[in-house]
Structure formats: C-alpha cells, structure tokens
Design a protein around this nucleic acid. Structure first.
Lengths: 133, 133
DNA sequence: TTTGACTTACGAAGGTCTTCGTTGACATCC
DNA sequence: GGATGTCAACGAAGACCTTCGTAAGTCAAA
C-alpha cells in the first residue's frame, strides 16, 4: 500500500512553490524563497509555513538530515497538470476534452512549427489507432 | 464607462451555479437549487446567498420585477473558459498554450471523428495563416 | 563562553468561501 | 381576518488560505 493518499489539490501559493521545486529540483526554504520572492513578495517564514503545510498534506517530502531541511515535490508536474486539466474539463467544458483542446488551440496562434507538428503527430496517432465511433 | 469592472474569478460553487445559468438561461433561485441540489446537496438559502454574492461581484444580473427574482449570467461561458485556460497556461504550463493542448490531447483518446476533424481544420488555419519565424 | 547568524516551530490575525438558521415581507387559501 | 407557505435578507459560524511576528534551537566564529 504505497499509494494510500490521494493528496489534495494544491492551492495557488502552493502551486507557485511546486513550480520552483519542479524546475530546480530539491530546494531548501531559503532557495525557494529567493527564487520566488527575491523582490520581496512574501517573507521567509511564509514560504516556510507553506512548505510545512504542504509536507503535512503530502505534497512535498522533506530531508532533515542537514540543519536546513531540503524539500522536494512528491507530486509530478505531469500528474498535476492532468489533474487540473480534467477538473477543468468537467467543470467548464461539459466533460469534453476535445472542446478544451479546440478552445485552447483557438487562443494559440503563436505556436512554433515544431509544436504544431508535434500536435499533428499526436492527432494522427489518436485518429489512426483508436478509431472509436 | 460601461466596462469598469474586471469581475473577479468565480469560485467553485459559483462555477456550479454559472453552469446552470449558462445551460438553462435565466433562472430563479429555486430553479437553480433544484437543478443543482435536487438530491439535497446544499440548502436553498445557500444557493440564494451565493447568488447574492455573485450579484454583488457582478457575475450575475438580477431581475426583481417578480417576487421570485430572476438571475442570469453576465459573464459568458466562452470568456470564462478563456480566462481559466490562460491562468492555467501561465501557472502550470510555463506560459505555453500548445503545451497545454498537447497534454489535453494526450488525455483525449475518445474524441469523435468530427471533433478530430475540427481540430485539424483549426490547426491548418493556424499553420497556414500565421507562419511566424 | 558569549555572540550573532541562520533555521525551524508555534500561534495568531485577517481574509475568503461555503453553509445554514432565523427573520420579516408578501401572497394565497380557508 | 388568520393560518400557511414561499421568498429575499441578514448575520453568523466553521473551514481553509495566506501572511507574519516571535520564540526556541543549532552552529560557528570570536
């Protein structure tokens, strides 16, 4: 039983921290804080508190071998993206993912050639492989 | 100055109500409540309170000519979809809408032929018309 | 050993969100 | 007219989120 916790949806501030953790890998509180609020958005203890809460929720793991604890994300970027995406589909797009794709694509005139090609390839794979009705 | 208010992002419970209003058109509180919590999810006054708050926020308009006030959405489904989509892109997809499309497409093996075709057409229009660098 | 820098831990304040109980207004039916 | 039912309005409670001030612990250098 390794996956006993569904681990709750991250809040906005938590997402900001997760982004740092995903990009930088494991970080200390100070590193996250400097990455996120170098200008002075939120204080050091705010980030610390958030990380403690996230740890309690199971969103991050903590290595306290050193004095400055090191945090790393336990939820993957992919999984989180998927989760938010599917919530959005049910809440806002009548449960139709392709509707979401259509809308998102409409707002995306600045895609690179490579990306467009990637999308086409994926499309081919879906169309060719899984011809449902 | 008709459009002085950006009108805040709807919360989850507010989104549920907006969905009803979008699908059914203008509704009384009772109608929304029965549509949403016929089983007994939340009480009548809860829906009423939410609609009052949404009215204060400018998310819905109210016609109080009759005793039972009639509410209708002032924000369109499209606009709201776009808004959530773009927030998601910046928060979760490094600002790249096509990345979002790619992911959403990956979770969409059950798209209908018609939808896939629609996506392809849109893709062609983007690719052909806006060939950037 | 004392000082100072750095760190975690604790608790609390202020805000928003969601829910509901109660009240008073209004209409209808007997 | 009085009882009954429906409605909007109000206030408040409880939960969660975000932020921060302060205390307490640890380590190294002076």
């Amino acid at each position: 039983m390794t996956s006993s916790k569904p681990s709750p949806r991250p809040t906005e501030a938590e997402l900001d921290i997760l982004r740092v953790l995903w990009d930088q890998g494991a970080c200390t509180v100070r590193e996250v804080h400097e990455q996120l609020h170098a200008d002075g958005g939120a204080g050091y203890t705010t980030v610390l508190k958030l990380l403690q809460i996230m740890h309690a929720k199971g969103l991050v793991a903590r290595d306290d071998a050193q004095r400055a604890h090191v945090y790393r994300a336990t939820v993957s970027r992919q999984r989180t993206q998927k989760r938010f995406l599917s919530e959005m589909v049910t809440r806002l797009f009548n449960g139709s993912p392709s509707q979401l794709v259509l809308h998102a694509l409409g707002e995306t005139p600045r895609a690179s050639k490579a990306e467009l090609r990637q999308i086409r390839e994926l499309l081919d794979r879906i169309d060719g492989g899984g011809k449902s009705q």
